[in-house]
């Protein structure tokens, strides 16, 4: 599905997805599209946080495994895993994030945002922009620039 960015006054639209039981999200303005049922081809000898490459509309897109990037272990799954991929907007790179499933587009008002929690590990603190307490639960908002840069 392609994403429209529409802004609401006094808040932001956050695209959210699930990894395990946690809800992650990013400002929808940074997301380009979401794809399902794509085969990610693993690249031998690449960095551990790289899940592989995938074909998105004719582009070879690098898929980052968020679980690993945030200091965890890669999910155990069959080789040809069909995952949800969130492609990011980036002018000179083709990058996407791998998630278990897409959750929703949430309208988060400014007062729902909180700063970065103090208990984050160093790795997490780098990639996490803020947290939002929404009616649907706690959403960890990611920092797109750090994610793009960090994986380089």
């Amino acid at each position: 599905m392609k994403i429209d960015d529409s802004t609401i006054v006094g808040g932001r639209q956050i695209l959210t997805w699930k990894i395990g039981e946690r809800l992650f999200g990013m400002d929808i303005g940074h997301c380009r599209e979401v794809d399902k049922d794509k085969v990610i081809v693993a690249v031998p000898h690449s960095r551990k946080e790289i899940a592989g490459i995938v074909n998105l509309r004719g582009d070879v897109v690098t898929v980052i495994d968020l679980r690993v990037l945030l200091g965890g272990e890669a999910a155990k799954a069959a080789d040809d895993q069909m995952s949800v991929i969130i492609r990011l907007k980036c002018r000179n790179q083709h990058v996407a994030l791998k998630a278990d499933s897409i959750y929703d587009v949430l309208s988060v008002t400014n007062d729902q945002f909180e700063g970065t929690p103090a208990h984050l590990s160093e790795i997490e603190a780098r990639y996490i922009q803020s947290v939002a307490m929404t009616p649907k639960g706690l959403v960890v908002i990611l920092n797109p620039d750090e994610i793009l840069r960090g994986a380089s």
Binding site: V43, I53, G58, V60, T62, I64, V95, S152
Partner: peptide, 19 residues
């Protein structure tokens, strides 16, 4: 031939990818 992204720049065994 499509180039592999910058994340793979130190990978010498692959020269690119194709669809």
């Amino acid at each position: 031939v499509k180039p592999l992204g910058e994340h793979f720049s130190d990978l010498t065994i692959f020269s690119g990818a194709a669809i």
